[in-house]
């Protein structure tokens, strides 16, 4: 039988009908047969058994954090709008000068601090609690 080239042997092992059913029996063919078998062998190591659950949990946590961030932004926007509207209405209808309202900075500061605490709690404190577990 005619010796086959490397290209023909590789095609034969790839399952391409280039050899009209002839089975080559030489060192090259044997080495290629071993090689193809080894190339198709799965690695002995793998991902952890609960990999899918871990990924899903991570995605769910990220989604929750994004939703909370979105909520915080909405709350902040509403707060700024309400404060501006209240001050605007006072100025227009009650003819009150905003600068003369007592404790005005305290009134603004309290909600701002509250929202900031909520934000940092979600961004810094909760993720670290999960990391420690």
């Amino acid at each position: 039988m005619k010796e086959m080239s490397d290209d023909e042997l590789q095609q034969w092992l790839d399952g391409k009908p280039s050899l009209n059913g002839n089975i080559p029996l030489n060192d090259d063919a044997e080495a290629y047969r071993n090689l193809f078998e080894a190339l198709g062998k799965e690695p002995e190591t793998g991902l952890s058994y609960n990999f899918a659950a871990k990924v899903t949990r991570k995605i769910a946590t990220e989604q929750k954090r994004n939703n909370e961030l979105r909520l915080n932004i909405i709350v902040a926007v509403i707060f700024i709008t309400v404060i501006s509207a209240v001050f605007g209405l006072f100025t227009v209808f009650a003819k009150v000068n905003i600068t003369s309202v007592p404790y005005k900075w305290l009134l603004i500061l309290i909600p701002v601090i509250f929202i900031a605490i909520q934000y940092f709690d979600q961004q810094l404190v909760k993720p670290n609690i999960f990391k420690r577990r």
Binding site: Q10, D28, A31, N34
Partner: peptide, 17 residues
């Protein structure tokens, strides 16, 4: 790439065997 890599590995396997 496939052809050359497989040919190279085949030669190594021949020596190994």
């Amino acid at each position: 790439y496939l052809f050359r890599a497989r040919k190279l590995l085949k030669e190594k396997i021949q020596v190994y065997l």
